[in-house]
Amino acid sequence: MKIGVITFPGSLDDVDAARAVRYAGAEPVALWHADQDLHEVHAVIVPGGFSYGDYLRCGAIARFAPVMTSVLDAARGGMPVLGICNGFQILCEAGLLPGALVRNSRLHFVCRDQWLRVENTHTAWSSRYERSAELLVPLKSGEGGYVADRSILDELEGEGRVVFRYVGKNPNGSLRDIAGISSPNGRVVGMMPHPEHAIDALTGPTDDGLGMFYSVLDSLVAA
């Protein structure tokens, strides 16, 4: 199985995302922002960082990169896509996921290990977890406050599309403690915390994040 990891100017976590893919037993494929070719990957990770320096708005310029046109087309065709941190911001800017990420309440850049609760185990990226399982993964973002209209929030809750919620004190003002959401078909997931940094207790707080990468492989084998 090949999983593409996009590199934009300013991406930081593409290397760790590729490493996580490798840990899970799949082949990471480097995708370049200026290249529309997805190189026959079966899924794509849009990694964290500060694409285009976060100029204009986080993700606002990256969403127009040539590779994203192909990713959006493939996602609409059912290909699994995971946006982490800046990748989540990019997927929201692109309209693939609803809502937006805004400056953290109290303005602090938050960098800490954060507990999350798994709310939906039926997405392509969360099937390996048990419902209500709690994960400890790094969170590191300055604009991680998830916002959306009340009607969108109700829709997300009603359809079970809140995939992860923050446990304990809300770190960034995200409405309804939302840490990650999915598309209606559960193939596209966006989240602010970083599962790719938590795949080995030697280098991260836990290996709790690895389940996401196993999950997508399960979904690809089943497809």
Partner: peptide
């Protein structure tokens, strides 16, 4: 401008 209903922590800090 941020919409009225969107929290504006930068404006609040100012």
């Amino acid at each position: 401008m941020p919409k009225p209903e969107i929290l504006d922590p930068q404006g609040q800090a100012v």
